[in-house]
Amino acid sequence: MHDRPTVDELLRAVEALLDEQLVPALEGARKYNARVASNVIKIARRELQHYERQADEEWRGLDIVLGAAARPAAPAALREAIRARNEELAQRIRDGDADAGDFRRLVLAHVRDTVHAKLEVANPGWLEG
């Protein structure tokens, strides 16, 4: 195992450097980019915090919409399998399967959950508007 600090603890140090030292000291485009960089670190930290739970929830949601499938155990395989199932879902929407009826309701509920999960990481404030 790696020594402490953990990945999150390392990122926290970079975030503090940006927020407490670099952003206040810079001007113009550099100040703006340092703010953006700080926000990127915050996104990365939230993804680390939520990733496992969100992948699990997305898989279970896809099971409801597309039918149950065998869930890969390894994280990389799970990521790839979620992607492949989202391709399948996208194709079914393109084919018009989700234009109306029960399948539309299932798809809308699931897609709303997954976009909610993305915003929990990317920009939680957006969910309040």
């Binding site: 992607r83 989202n86 879902l89 996208a90 929407i93 393109r94 018009g96 989700a98 798809v107 897609v111």
Partner: peptide, 12 residues
Amino acid sequence: VEPHPAFELAFR
């Protein structure tokens, strides 16, 4: 580079 079911719903 990734599938986007929400955008597919919107295009539809």
